[in-house]
Design a protein around this nucleic acid. Structure first.
Lengths: 228, 228
DNA sequence: CTTTTGTGTTGATATATATCAATATATATT
DNA sequence: AATATATATTGATATATATCAACACAAAAG
């Protein structure tokens, strides 16, 4: 028997740039530049070359896998302060997922060469990056378990707990995610997601109208996640 | 539209220890020790502390996630030469998957402190490790796409291609994997796996009796992977 | 050599989930 | 305000897949 309480999409990092030396942070300040994205715009596309590491300064974005079908797999939501590199660095230097702004978003760009030099010259930073990658890896394993062995109710409960705990930090939140997005986070169709939201509503576990969500009975959600 | 031809479980690495300096390799030689495992024995268990990095010297092993149900998720098969660390290092120093010998297997143990000192003193090795972790990450993304958006035929085809291409390097192989293992690699029940194997057999795509597999029409498998 | 135990196989059935189609509601545009 | 467009909702139906049960076969144990 094994631990089994993790979320479908855990927020697995704060900004690891805090592990840079003061000199490196100075260097970063001078060289990075920022770009504004409107709601709905792609910040970068899966398959495209990856000449930069990006840090979200404000706004909110979704990270998802495209696989040629019309359905996407949303891996996680990124909040301000988070770095987005992706597994492309030191491998093929391509993006392996697409990132789209859910709200108006400001992103800072860090050149790949700068980033690499930080790594080479600062072993502690390298170790923190490895730790960061490993945490991302662990959260993927958790997602795997939930997606392959949990039914829809459990998967949707997991998404709601993730949004509440890791993104909005409240039981009561307005979201810019569509029902389709919530479905893409939970590996189901939007019709199924809507039906389950309705069930949760009827049972009194949550309230939701349009973009407003209120979790009345978090314990019930956790129990559905656990058993469903 | 995005690339979509990857395997369900890609072998994503050769031994990254070759990037150690000669001195470090010497040091490693002297300090590492090896252990024999019989077929069926656990090499390590998910949740257990991780005081060592392990390298498989001979034999074959399966890496899988346990999630409290009686079904497992086989992530990949490990061949001789491959390192097994797992995402525990620099995080919680626990194993996040279980590894079990499929055949009699010899494993070498490398102390965590030694491994860490290699990293701190050899930036190139650190970068190779990051590359290795990223490749593992990419292969997990691929597995995600297949599991969430492919039907059973495609998932089983993917497993067969993986075994042929990445593990046995032949269209014709004897395997120590059970039908249950093949099912666990393909995210389905063993009954479903058996039925699909039978379908593939009837269509002339493969031959299989007991532990012997022969892929007659690899193109057909690839096409099922792509479209099914 | 027989018994036991694990693995493989097949069929019948139940269930979870997707698909399709119709309608409602909200958001954007003119 | 009126129209167009995207998103949300609901119901009916089809389909993929799991579950259950029975049996066959092979490997291991006595």
């Amino acid at each position: 028997m094994v631990n089994n309480t993790s979320n479908l999409s855990t927020s697995y990092t704060d900004n690891i740039l805090k592990f840079l030396s003061p000199t490196q942070l100075d260097q970063l300040e001078q060289k990075q530049y920022s770009v504004n994205f409107n709601k709905g715009e792609n910040i970068f596309k899966q398959g495209a070359p990856m000449p930069h590491i990006i840090v979200i300064k404000s706004g909110l974005a979704k990270v998802y896998l495209e696989d040629g079908t019309n359905r996407n797999i949303i891996l996680r939501i990124i909040k301000p302060g988070e770095i987005i590199g992706g597994p492309g660095f030191f491998t093929d230097y391509k993006h392996h997922f697409t990132v789209t702004a859910l709200e108006d978003t400001v992103a800072n760009y860090i050149g790949m060469d700068d980033f690499k030099s930080f790594l080479m010259n600062n072993p502690d930073f390298a170790i923190e990056l490895i730790a960061y990658l490993n945490k991302a890896h662990i959260s993927l394993y958790d997602k795997f378990k939930i997606i392959t062995h949990k039914h829809m109710n459990g998967r949707l409960a997991s998404t709601l707990v993730y949004l509440s705990d890791s993104i909005y930090n409240s039981l009561d939140f307005e979201t810019s995610l569509t029902r389709q997005d919530i479905a893409d986070m939970s590996s189901m169709t939007k019709e199924s997601a809507i039906r389950i939201l309705k069930d949760f509503k009827t049972s009194g576990i949550i309230e939701c109208t349009n973009n407003h969500f209120l979790i009345n009975d978090k314990q019930a959600l956790l129990s559905i996640l656990q058993n469903g």
